[in-house]
Simulated assay, not measured.
Amino acid sequence: MTEYFTIESQEGERIDRYLSEELEDKSRSYIQKLIRDGHVLVDGKTVKAGYRLVAGDNIAITLPEIKEPEIPAENIPLYILYEDKDLLVVNKPKQMVVHPAPGHYTGTLVNALMYHCGQDLSGINGIMRPGIVHRIDMDTTGSLVVCKTDSAHQSLSAQLKEHSIHRIYEAIVHGNIKEEEGTVNAPIGRHPTDRKKMSIHSRNGKNAVTHYQVLKRFGDYTYIRCRLETGRTHQIRVHMASIGHPLLGDQVYGPKKCPFPKLQGQTLHARILGFIHPSTGEYLEIEAPLPQYFVELLDKLMYNS
C-alpha cells in the first residue's frame, strides 16, 4: 500500500518526524527503516531520514504488506444495545481493547464479535479490525458501532469523516469548572517527545473541537457532558487536560496518583451515539447506560460534597 503527501506548511521539518506524526500507528524508528530501505520517495527520489521538507514536496511512502495472524473467535459476553442485519451497537466495558494488536490477539472486542457474528462482519478494515468503524480507548466505556456489511461500513465511515455522527460522552474531571459550558478548539497531534501521548502542541496537529457542559459540581471534581465535533485520538482527555481539568483516573494526562485507588483508568463513558442508518436513511440514536463503577463514584462524590 502506498500513501501520498504534499508538503504545504511543514517546511523545514525532518521527514521521519513528519511521517511518524501523519501515520499515527507507525513508530519513528519504523519510518526510519522504511526510509533506509528505499520505501520513501520525495519527488520520485530516495532521501535520508534527516531530509528537511520543502514546500511543494510530493512524498510517496510504500508500506509493506504485513502477514496478519488468524484472529480466533471467542465466546466473550457482549452487551448489545442495538442490532439488525446491517450493524450492531455494543456497550463496551472497561479494560476491553477494541481490536487485536501485536502481542495482544485475544480477549478483544473483535474476538467477541467474530464469535457473535461469524462471517457477518464488514471486511473493509481487514482481518485485524473486521466491522470496526471507530474505536474507543481500553478504559473508556460505552457505545460503539460495528458494521456487518461493507455498504454499512462505507456509509458510517463517510458520516464520521464529515463529522455528522452525534457523539456524547460523560466524564468526571479534576477541579471545579466555573462556567456552565464551553468549547475547546485546539488541534491535536502526536506529542513532540512522547509518542504514546497526544498533544495540542504538535506541529502537525489536526483540527479538533470539543464542546463541554457542566452536569454537577462536587467541589474538587466536576461531572460533565462532552459533544465531539471531531474524533481525534484521546481528544476529550487531551482537551480537558489542556484547560486544567484532566479526567479523574487518567494517569497519562492527569495526576500520576489517583485519589480513588480502585479506579482503572479515566472516568469516561460514550453515552450517546446517533447517526443516519445506512439502509433506512432514518436517524438512529442509541444510549448506553452508565457503568456501575461510574454510578457508584458519582454517589460517593455526592455524599462527600
Rank of each mutant, 00 (worst) to 15 (best):
N207I: 12
R225N: 10
H269K: 02
G244W: 04
K262E: 15
E229H: 11
F275Y: 14
R271E: 13
A208L: 03
G265A: 13
G254I: 02
Q251D: 14
C226Y: 02
G274Q: 10
K196C: 06
Q213R: 15
C258R: 06
T280A: 11
L268Q: 05
F275E: 07
Y253I: 04
H245S: 03
D250P: 01
V214W: 04
G254K: 01
E287L: 12
P246A: 06
Q235T: 09
Q251I: 14
D220L: 13
K216R: 15
T230F: 06
L268M: 11
N204G: 02
L284H: 11
T210C: 10
R227I: 11
I272D: 14
N204K: 03
D220V: 04
A241D: 00
N204E: 10
I272N: 08
M198W: 03
T222K: 06
G254P: 02
R232L: 00
G274K: 04
N207C: 12
E285F: 11
I200A: 00
I200G: 00
H211C: 08
G219K: 07
C258L: 12
H201G: 00
I236D: 05
R271M: 12
A241L: 02
G274A: 12
R203T: 09
K257F: 08
G265F: 09
K216Q: 15
H269P: 00
I236L: 12
D220W: 09
S242N: 09
D250S: 03
H234D: 06
I286L: 13
I286H: 10
L263F: 10
F275R: 05
P261Y: 13
K206Q: 14
S242Y: 02
T222C: 10
Y221M: 05
H277W: 09
L248S: 05
G219D: 06
Q213W: 09
T267G: 00
G265D: 12
R195A: 07
C258M: 14
G231T: 08
T267L: 12
R225V: 08
K256C: 11
I286V: 15
L248P: 01
E285L: 12
Q213M: 09
Q264K: 15
L263C: 08
H269R: 01
P246G: 05
R271N: 10
H201P: 00
